[in-house]
Simulated assay, not measured.
Amino acid sequence: MSLSFTRHRRLRQSAAIRSMVRETVLTPADFIQPIYVTYGEGVKQDIKSMPGVYRFSLDMLEEELLEIVSLNIPAVLLFGIPETKDSVGSSAYADNGIVQEATRLIKSRYPDLLVIADTCLCEFTDHGHCGMVHTYEHDGELCGDVLNDESLELLVKTAVSQAQAGADIIAPSNMMDGFVQAIRGGLDEAGFSHIPIMSYSVKYASAFYGPFREAAGSAPQFGDRKTYQMDPANAREALREAESDVLEGADMLMVKPSLSYLDVMRTLKDQFDLPLVAYNVSGEYAMVKAAALNGWIDEKAMVLEILTSMKRAGADMIITYSAKDAAKWLQDGGR
């Protein structure tokens, strides 16, 4: 019998063939591991909504760093939980701030491990917003407006202090208009023209951030962040945000979250030639962990499939709380 259809299954007949023709390949070099650092001694505190993720005091970082380096993960993303907060987030740009101290420690012990400093104010302000606010009462409730241009000055101070502490990459996540231009100018003026900016270019006002806000203690005390983070319904707006960052001097673009925004990632990859970063955020991690702990899914298979989808959509780097697990699984043969 003569058959005319194409036999696609020929290239799926064995693991060896599938491996040879695989179009998208994950490696530990693709990953960036987030780390939460805090004050105190002997602190390795569980984050209940993110099993396997912890807050570390500086004296407890060594074991975590050693594991990250041994797994050939090239970079960490630092988030800090300060001792005190105020209305202008002064701990974010203090010379002895927790992110600055952690950066110095990491670079002294593991100079080849890239330190990426998250540059925002929300963890450091007593109101939980990503910039300065003008507060007022309305119908007996506290309200506030986030002040864009005034916030830029504080973000520049934060970025410069992080660079002075030894950060290899500055990653501003605040979504203020003009933040890349302001930070680029501030870094250049302070003698850090060689420090790249990994911009949170397309950051949505997402429900997937809930566990992070527990981990970092950064939930807004009033209102929400919808006036500066993007509407999840919008895709074309992402192009405008990214184009602004490109023109202002960003070296890398990011889409956050990633799993529900793979279409946006693909669009940015097709439109711009800068490296693209995916942020596999806390809520995405928590969903998988919860299902795995209930025995409903194969965690290894699902995590690797999710991360592969992000790389297939165009990501050159992936920030993920699963970095260590994924690196171990890949070393053991992956799928």
Rank of each mutant, 00 (worst) to 15 (best):
M1V: 13
S2Q: 09
L3P: 00
F5S: 14
R9K: 06
L11H: 09
R18D: 00
T27I: 07
T27F: 07
Q33V: 01
T38G: 07
G40M: 05
Q45H: 07
Q45R: 14
K48C: 00
Y54F: 15
Y54A: 10
R55Q: 12
R55G: 04
M60Y: 02
E63L: 10
L71K: 13
A75N: 03
L77C: 05
L78I: 13
F79I: 05
P82V: 09
Y93E: 02
D95H: 12
D95P: 01
A102N: 00
R104H: 04
R104Q: 08
L105P: 00
S108E: 09
S108L: 02
Y110Q: 05
D112E: 11
I116K: 00
G131Y: 09
G131P: 13
V133T: 15
Y136D: 04
E141A: 14
V146M: 15
V146G: 01
S151T: 14
S151V: 03
L152C: 11
E153P: 02
T158E: 01
A159L: 08
Q162G: 11
G166S: 09
G166K: 11
D168T: 14
D168C: 14
S193R: 12
P196I: 14
S199I: 14
S199F: 10
V202R: 06
K203I: 08
S206E: 04
P220T: 03
Q221S: 05
F222G: 10
K226Q: 13
K226V: 04
P232E: 02
A235M: 13
R236H: 11
V246S: 07
L247N: 14
S260Y: 03
R266L: 01
T267D: 04
T267W: 03
D270M: 12
F272A: 04
F272N: 04
D273M: 11
D273S: 15
P275L: 11
A278M: 03
S282M: 08
Y285I: 00
M287R: 10
M287E: 12
V288L: 15
L293H: 13
G295T: 12
W296P: 03
M302A: 15
V303A: 08
E305K: 02
E305M: 06
L307M: 04
I319G: 08
S322L: 00
D325W: 09
G333C: 08
